[in-house]
């Protein structure tokens, strides 16, 4: 039997090595490409947003502290930021408490006990209340829409939050993953016909909003409302007394402006008008 010559030996081995190396190289490249593709794929922004809305809407009770700020564009163009701190306690289906403190120290309270909605100004020592039996959804919409009262981020209190967002949001973009808010979060940007907003939503099994920025894009100066949330607590069992209101001594009841007959909302930028008829 003829033994292979040295030349043949050396000419066959490199070919085998080359083939093996090539196969391994291709496998490696393919693996890297797949990993890159998987890593680069952005989550669906709308899905992330709606997951947050669904989670919040289905949470039976929660409390949170929100440090909020908004821009007030002054007549001569200065844009001034005002700050407030709010503590919200919600117990579905029919209990709500919102404590607020403005940057100048003025404190106020909004309470709903399932039957009446009350707002109390501690500094002025006056309160107003209106009967409105029903759910938190009913009370919040009545308070904001019918009584014309201010309740920032009211949509986030509703069972119907997912529906409200679906109806209003025209487009949603996923911006990035971020870790600057104390926990990993998904940064979402969305548009409605009149307001653009961004939400930073915690990753994981409790997709809670950590920060919200609203931009009033059709208003002069494009002012913003910003809220940073902390101390989310979904494991609370607040008692009924937390949501009931007993007027302190010396506190007077006054009507809601919206219930005063003859007072009509003024067009933006003009003075209020009085209709005919006596009070």
């Amino acid at each position: 039997m003829e033994r292979p010559t040295g030349n043949l030996l050396f000419s066959q081995r490199p070919t085998r090595y080359l083939k093996s190396f090539g196969a391994l190289f291709l496998i490696g490249v393919a693996t890297l490409a797949l990993a890159w593709a998987a890593g680069e794929k952005k989550p669906d922004g709308r899905a992330v947003l709606m997951r947050m809305a669904d989670f919040l809407a289905k949470s039976p009770a929660w409390s949170v502290t929100a440090h909020t700020a908004y821009d007030a564009v002054q007549p001569d163009g200065y844009k001034v930021e005002w700050n407030e701190m709010r503590t919200v306690t919600l117990r579905r289906p029919d209990r709500l408490r919102v404590e607020s403190q403005r940057s100048d120290g003025a404190r106020s309270l909004v309470l709903f006990d399932g039957k009446e909605i009350t707002t109390f100004d501690e500094s002025a020592r006056v309160y107003a209340k209106a009967p409105h039996p029903g759910s938190v959804d009913d009370a919040v919409v009545y308070f904001v829409h019918d009584l014309g009262m201010r309740l920032p981020l009211a949509v986030m209190l509703l069972d119907r939050m997912p529906a409200e967002l679906q109806q209003r949001v025209q487009s949603v973009e996923y911006v990035e993953k971020t870790a600057t808010l104390g926990a990993p979060a998904d940064h979402i940007a969305a548009k409605t016909p009149t307001v653009d907003f961004q939400v930073w939503i915690a990753e994981g099994d409790q997709p809670l909003p950590l920060r919200v920025v609203l931009t009033y894009k059709r208003t002069r100066g494009q002012p913003q409302f910003r809220a940073q949330f902390s101390d989310w607590n979904l494991d609370i069992k607040p008692s009924d007394t937390l949501f009931s209101f007993t007027p302190p001594a010396g506190v007077n009841q006054i009507p809601f402006a919206a219930t005063l007959p003859g007072l009509t909302p003024a067009p933006e930028g003009s003075a209020a008008r009085m209709k005919g008829g006596k009070q």
Binding site: T68, Y70, D71, A72, V73, Q74, P75, Y78, V80, W82, V144, R150, L151, P152, L153, A154, V155, E164, L165, Q167, R168, Q170, T192, P193, T194, V195, F197, L214, Y216, R218, T219, P223, Q224, F225, A227, E268
Partner: peptide, 26 residues
């Protein structure tokens, strides 16, 4: 002094500047 008032104070997801006049309109 400075006014605290303005649309952003509402903190709402809609603005009166051109409110949604029904979903179809929007």
């Amino acid at each position: 002094g400075f006014s605290r008032e303005g649309p952003a104070a509402a903190g709402s997801f809609a603005s009166r500047s051109e409110g949604m006049r029904g979903r179809e309109g929007g």
